[in-house]
Amino acid sequence: MLRIAPVAAFILMAPLGAQTVVVQPAPGIRATETRTVPIAQGGSLKVSNVNGHIRVTVWERPDVEFTGAFVPGAGKEQVKVVLEPRNGGLEIRGEYPKDSHKGPVCEMDLKVPRSVLPILETVNGLVELKDVAGAAACRTVNGAIRVEHLQGALTAETVNGGITGSDLAGPVTARTVNGAIRLAAQNLKGRLKATTVNGTLRIRSEGARDVSAAKHRFEASFGDSAQVLQIKTVNGDITLD
C-alpha cells in the first residue's frame, strides 16, 4: 500500500484562511481590480478566461496576485472572476454572461510563486508565462502563446496564433493550425517529431541520430531519453534552435 508521509500531506493542505474571492466591477465602467490569495507550495494553478489575455510572472511570495483589467460589454455587463482555493491550489475563472451582442473583456495579469503548476486557458487572447519551475499547460484559440524560462514539461496549443518558447528545459508538445512555432530548448533529449503542411522546417540537428527527414517532416533522437517531443503546425514554419 502506498503511504504518504505526514509532511507531504501538510504541504498539500489549503493555506490557513483560504477562501473564495469574487471580483466583479459595477456595470458599465472600465476598472482595474487587484486581489491577493495564498497558495500552497507546489500547488496547481488553473486559470480560465474567454475574452482577454492571461499573463503570468513569478514573484517571491507564497501568494497569487490577480490583477484584472475589466471592460464592460455592449450591454454594460461585466465579467465575474472567481478565485477559488482547491486542495492547496487555486482556480481562477472568468464567468461570462450567456447573452451578449458584444461581450465584456477581462485582461488577466498574475504574479505567482515559482513552484506553481499552471494550466492557463483562454479563447480570445494571448497566453504568456515566464520563469515557472513546474510543468505547464497553455491553451488558447485566437491568440499566441509565449513561454520563457520553464524548467518542467510544456504543453502549448492554439489554433490561430504562433507559439514561441525560449530557455525550455523539459519535454515539449506544441501544436497550432495557423501560425509558426519557434522554440529554443536546453540540452534537447528524446524523440523529436516535427511536422508542418504549409511551411518550412528549420531544425538544429547537431547530435541527432536515427534521423528521418522530408520536406515537411523531421524525426530524430537526441540523447538517451525515451520522452517524445511533438511540434506540429499546418500553416506555418517550425524553427528549433
Rank of each mutant, 00 (worst) to 15 (best):
Q24F: 08
R30G: 06
R30L: 03
R30D: 13
R30Y: 07
R30W: 00
T32I: 13
T32H: 00
T32N: 07
E33R: 03
T34M: 13
R35W: 07
R35N: 09
V37R: 06
P38E: 01
I39C: 11
A40V: 00
G42E: 15
G42V: 15
G43N: 05
G43F: 14
G43S: 00
K46F: 14
V47S: 09
S48W: 14
N49T: 04
V50F: 12
V50P: 07
N51K: 02
N51M: 12
R55V: 08
V56L: 09
T57H: 01
T57I: 10
V58A: 02
V58S: 02
V58F: 08
W59L: 09
E60Y: 00
R61N: 07
P62S: 03
P62C: 03
D63H: 11
V64Q: 11
E65K: 02
E65P: 04
F66N: 06
T67N: 00
G68D: 07
G68A: 06
A69P: 10
F70H: 06
F70A: 09
V71Y: 08
P72H: 09
G73A: 13
G75D: 14
G75F: 02
K76E: 01
E77I: 14
Q78G: 13
V81I: 11
V81M: 15
V82S: 15
E84C: 10
E84G: 11
N87Q: 15
G89N: 01
R93C: 03
Y96P: 00
P97W: 09
D99V: 00
H101T: 10
K102I: 05
K102H: 10
G103I: 01
P104T: 04
P104F: 11
V105E: 12
E107P: 02
M108D: 10
D109R: 06
D109V: 08
D109Q: 11
L110F: 03
K111A: 01
V112W: 10
R114G: 11
V116L: 04
P118S: 05
L120H: 01
E121Q: 09
E121P: 03
T122V: 03
T122F: 00
V123K: 04
V123Y: 00
N124S: 02
G125N: 07
L126V: 05
V127P: 08
